[in-house]
Structure formats: structure tokens, C-alpha cells
Simulated assay, not measured.
Amino acid sequence: MSAAIIAKLHDRFDAQAAQGMDAVFQFHFSDAGDHHLVVRNGTLDIREGEHDEPSVSLSMHSATLKKVMSGELNGMSAFMSGKLRATGNVMLATQLTRLFPGD
């Protein structure tokens, strides 16, 4: 994941929406390695690598994440078309747009 994407995630993070949440979003990027987001009671920590016990794991190309986060591509459409694969608490993935609202 590029430093620019990480910075943008930090900038867009809605701490209010994350109050009371304790979740780990694992990302497996086909072109950029593994990263995980730890969202804990209004805070965000982004780390490289794999987490031992992610709440949900998402596999995709980094361009797919950019499109979903920008609103250019609907997350459910990406999932249904096979551009995004999810395991674990899949419903948690639907919270990403609430945690990282558009501009």
C-alpha cells in the first residue's frame, strides 16, 4: 500500500464512526503486499503485514480499493464481480465506507 493511500486513509478516518468498535481489517493486495487496519474505540492504526486474528480479510488489487474508497465502484459490486474476495466477518467490510467517508 503506498504511503499516499495510507495518508489518505488517516485523513478520511471518522473517529466518531469508530467509537466502540474493535476490529481488524486485513488487506491482501495482489500488487502491494499485506496490510491491516486496527480500529479500536475511535482510533486507527495501519500496519504492514498479516495480523494473527483479523476480524475480516479482504483480497483485491490496490486499484480496486482506491475505486471503492472514492465511490467510483460499489463495494458490493466489486465483491459480486469477483474483484474483491472477503472471508471472516464479511458484514464488517460494509462499515469501511462509514469509517472512511468520501470527500
Rank of each mutant, 00 (worst) to 15 (best):
E48V: 06
D22V: 05
V56D: 04
T43W: 05
F79R: 10
V39W: 00
R40I: 04
D31F: 01
H28S: 13
D14N: 12
S2I: 01
K83S: 08
L96A: 12
T87Y: 05
L99A: 05
L96P: 02
T94P: 05
F29N: 03
D14A: 02
A63G: 13
S59R: 12
T94K: 10
D103M: 03
F27D: 08
V56E: 01
R47C: 12
H51R: 05
A4H: 09
A3E: 15
K66L: 14
L9Y: 05
P101G: 13
G88F: 10
V56W: 01
L9C: 07
Q19H: 13
L44P: 01
T87W: 00
H35A: 09
F27C: 10
S62L: 03
D45H: 07
F29M: 11
V90L: 15
L37P: 01
D34F: 10
R47H: 15
A15G: 15
D34Y: 08
D11S: 13
T43F: 06
I5S: 07
S59K: 10
D52W: 04
M21H: 09
V24D: 03
R85W: 06
D103F: 01
L44T: 06
F29A: 07
G102F: 07
A18D: 02
D103C: 00
F13E: 00
H36V: 05
L65R: 08
L99C: 02
L37E: 00
V24H: 05
F79P: 06
D103H: 02
R12T: 00
A4L: 07
N74P: 08
D31L: 02
A63E: 14
S30G: 15
K8Q: 12
I5E: 06
L73Y: 09
S77M: 13
S81D: 04
V56M: 04
A32W: 07
Q95H: 08
S59H: 11
G71H: 05
S57D: 11
I46K: 06
T94I: 03
S55P: 06
E53N: 15
F100E: 04
F79G: 07
A63C: 07
T64H: 04
A93S: 13
D103T: 01
M91F: 11
G88E: 11
M21P: 00
V90R: 11
A7S: 10
A93N: 09
M76W: 12
L65S: 08
T43D: 04
R98Y: 00
V39T: 00
A15Q: 13
M60L: 15
M1K: 02
L92E: 11
K66F: 08
A78W: 13
K67N: 12
H28E: 15
L44N: 02
A63I: 09
M21D: 08
L44R: 04
G42P: 03
L73N: 09
L37V: 00
S62H: 09
G33C: 14
N74D: 14
G102V: 14
K8D: 14
S77A: 14
V39C: 01
A15R: 13
P54V: 12
H10M: 02
M60G: 01
R40Q: 13
N41I: 06
S30E: 12
F27R: 08
D103K: 04
H61F: 10
F79A: 10
M80A: 15
S2W: 03
G82K: 10
F27K: 05
G20W: 08
I5Y: 02
L92G: 06
V68S: 06
K83L: 13
E50G: 08
G49S: 07
M60P: 01
E50D: 11
